[in-house]
């Protein structure tokens, strides 16, 4: 079953099968030492510029800022949920640490 993944409204949100699933302005903790020197990046998502499916995992390329140190940019493709049998399920992003896909693949 194919799943439609899109970033819409100037990068404001991720659409999965025509439903709004992730919006900018969420705060995430990232394990992304390449992004800034903070132990865990305290990251605000300001805009999404792309979405990809890596296996079952849905990841968004996200522009944002570490609100602890002020570093801004794109820390990589950040996994926000997964797809099983055509159904999307979002991660509990407020309470877990997200690790960029690129970092896992090293």
């Amino acid at each position: 079953m194919s799943v439609a993944l899109r970033i819409l409204d100037d990068g404001a949100w991720l659409s999965v099968n025509d439903q709004r699933r992730v919006s900018v302005s969420e705060l995430w903790r990232l394990d992304a030492p390449d992004f800034c020197d903070c132990d865990l990046v305290d990251f605000i998502a300001e805009g999404f510029t792309g979405v990809s499916a890596d296996g079952h995992q849905v990841a968004v390329t996200t522009y944002g800022k570490c609100i602890a140190c002020g570093e801004s940019g794109v820390p990589g493709k950040l996994p926000v949920g997964h797809i099983r049998q055509g159904e999307y399920k979002g991660y509990d992003r407020q309470n877990i640490v997200l690790r960029p896909i690129e970092r896992r693949q090293r």
Partner: peptide, 10 residues
């Protein structure tokens, strides 16, 4: 702002 807008943060 966030009253109605998808993109706004505050």
């Amino acid at each position: 702002g966030t009253e109605f807008c998808s993109l706004s943060i505050v």
